[in-house]
Design a protein around this nucleic acid. Sequence first.
DNA 1: TGGGTCATGTAACCTGTTACATGATTAG
DNA 2: CTAATCATGTAACAGGTTACATGACCCA
Lengths: 200, 200
Amino acid sequence: MLKHGILGLINNGDKTGYEIMRVFRDSLDHFWTAQTSQIYRELKTMEKAGWINETHVPQSGKPDKNVYSITPAGTDELLKWLREDNIPAGIRNPFLMKIFFMGELPVEENIAFFKAFSEASVFPDEGRQASVNADMYRQAVDHPEKAVYWKLTIEFGRMYEKMQREWCSYCLRELEGLQRMKEAQERHDTITADTEEEET
Amino acid sequence: MLKHGILGLINNGDKTGYEIMRVFRDSLDHFWTAQTSQIYRELKTMEKAGWINETHVPQSGKPDKNVYSITPAGTDELLKWLREDNIPAGIRNPFLMKIFFMGELPVEENIAFFKAFSEASVFPDEGRQASVNADMYRQAVDHPEKAVYWKLTIEFGRMYEKMQREWCSYCLRELEGLQRMKEAQERHDTITADTEEEET
DNA sequence: TGGGTCATGTAACCTGTTACATGATTAG
DNA sequence: CTAATCATGTAACAGGTTACATGACCCA
């Protein structure tokens, strides 16, 4: 998957590993993250597979760089991948894994958790968003229709965050209901205990 | 992460690797998937770490089984993990990765893709849902408040699917707009070409 | 003088996937 | 008779994380 992402970026113009790292960090981090260590490793295997060519470029004042360009085999691979049925098979949401087992902690603690969480995600990082826009609008000048697809991924992120905030409110309502139930239960238990004491 | 999921399940009662596999397959697959090969490997490392104890139980008519039970160190680890700040660091959405590079394919093909996608996700697998409910309601009889947290994860899944369908409609509107723009452009080009022909 | 950017990587490790292997019992 | 269920795993590989290393140049 990362291989194909890198391939797609090189398809939009020759790039060094370092440049690829910056694109992931600055513009794609709302759906994918990649470490340099991984990028350099993938580039080597992609070159061996014949998808890209490496050109060593000596520089003065800066470290030398390796520039990668896509090959015809690479273009074929990219189009093949785009047309493939890559339905995400294994779902994995670490966040929900935690929620599922939260019953082990006191309700109060979990209510606090959700409150902190919904407050943290109210403002979806305006700063980063702006720099992403700047970067992508520049691209959009050269390839106006490619920007449409980028917009679709951004909109997904926006809708996801909105949904998450709504879900958070729902969770708080549910947990506050649970808390009231427990409080009522405790009051009832105390009264029953008192009555039993009176009876004895 | 999977380690802690397994730990949480064993915390709700002693289990074999096989039973754990079934819980993942039948009740947690809306947020996590796990292969038996991985489960058995994790169980061994967890035992070495002292989180769980293994008891070999010979059986007749069936293969022998290894039953795992949580240790005090395991309980500590579970609570520690639940209280930790496990903000999902690396986001990874293979689906959006594909969308981002879709500009390489013709718009018509992408419209067809989104149409197929939104049709595929209209019915969220009623059969599985029912069996999940049956399983969890049984659990809920013993621990009614734990079921609340399970309900929260189910609701997340529901809201996520709804959002995805809405996003899909948005994508189709955008791409159909793009298509109309391209058609208009083509008509314009043809007219211009005709005019130029007339002029030459 | 210290931190950021440019630019490359290695090594060890952890996590997840795919394919394979065994073998009895039980239900359709 | 065949397929599913119960129950265990190994081996190889693919993908991702963490930590470390180097070194010059530029800006405050």
